[in-house]
Design a protein around this nucleic acid. Structure first.
Lengths: 152, 152
DNA sequence: CTTTCTGCAAACCTTTTGCATCCAT
DNA sequence: ATGGATGCAAAAGGTTTGCAGAAAG
């Protein structure tokens, strides 16, 4: 059976990029931290555990390459750092994010909730949508119940 | 009649900030470029025309202050620069953006299209939404018709 | 073999900060 | 008068780039 990493490798290969150990280690780290929103520095430190000789510049170059291939999405939550988020396999659009302003946690919504909104935008503004970025800021489930506890 | 700039001034005053000429000039520039998405540098150059002695650091400090007061929203379209966008007076939520991947134009949608989506998010994920950021990438009306022209 | 990739360090850019001076209130 | 605000220059991030050597295909 073909694994996810194999398919990503094939994608690299197909675009005539070389399969170096550094690139493989970087992809592996991203797969192992699929739920997280790692910065380039985060990825660098994690890849270093597998390939200690890797340089930060290589990580940046690999992440840019994976962004071009749409394997990852590059996002910016406004804290001055770019973060790299693995795209769901075959997903047409980028998933949504919930950022808690209390605890800072970032949760993901994989389900696409924008179908109807996109129909409106496409027709009303004659805009052909290729992708979207949707982020909500608010209080997450966990922090809300902390408040409830405090009020008891 | 009270003008928009007067109300912003009052807001500054109310939060016990001083009304300096530099701050006034910055607010003025933002009002004059309401449709644009200016970076700090852009604002700096425009403010310099009114107040040539202003420093870039002051512009940054003023923009941060206006962001705290929710007069402007700080956004990042992923090009490594923060941009500052005047919020509609009294708007509860930040407006949406349409970025054209052909010509780079950024259009705004002032109307809030996320009402239904937010209800779903609030109930299904028990997340109390305070604000949202929604951006679409695609081909704008103008570029689409350029293509049509080309095909004729 | 050839071309691409890597690591290192330097360069770059945007944003922030320290500090002496200035100025609204 | 006096505490906050400014301008300047330096510092501080994060990211990109040039280059010589290494290695994948």
């Amino acid at each position: 059976m073909e694994s996810r990493i194999d398919r990503i490798k094939k994608q690299l290969h197909g675009a005539s990029y070389k399969l170096t150990p550094q690139r493989e280690a970087t992809v592996l780290v991203l797969l192992e931290h699929e739920e997280d929103h790692l910065s380039a520095e985060d990825v660098f430190l994690l890849v270093k555990e597998k390939a200690p000789e890797i340089g930060l510049a290589t990580v940046y170059r690999t992440l840019e390459l994976l962004t071009d291939l749409k394997v990852v999405d590059k996002i910016n939550f406004g804290d001055g750092v770019s973060r790299y988020d693995l795209r769901q396999e075959g997903a047409a659009h980028f998933h949504h994010h919930l950022i808690c302003i209390e605890c800072g946690t970032v949760d993901e919504i994989q389900e696409d909730l924008l179908g109807d909104v996109e129909k409106i935008v496409e027709s009303r503004f004659e805009f052909a949508i290729k992708d979207h970025w949707l982020t909500f800021h608010g209080i997450c489930k966990r922090c809300k119940s902390d408040v409830d506890e405090g009020e008891k």
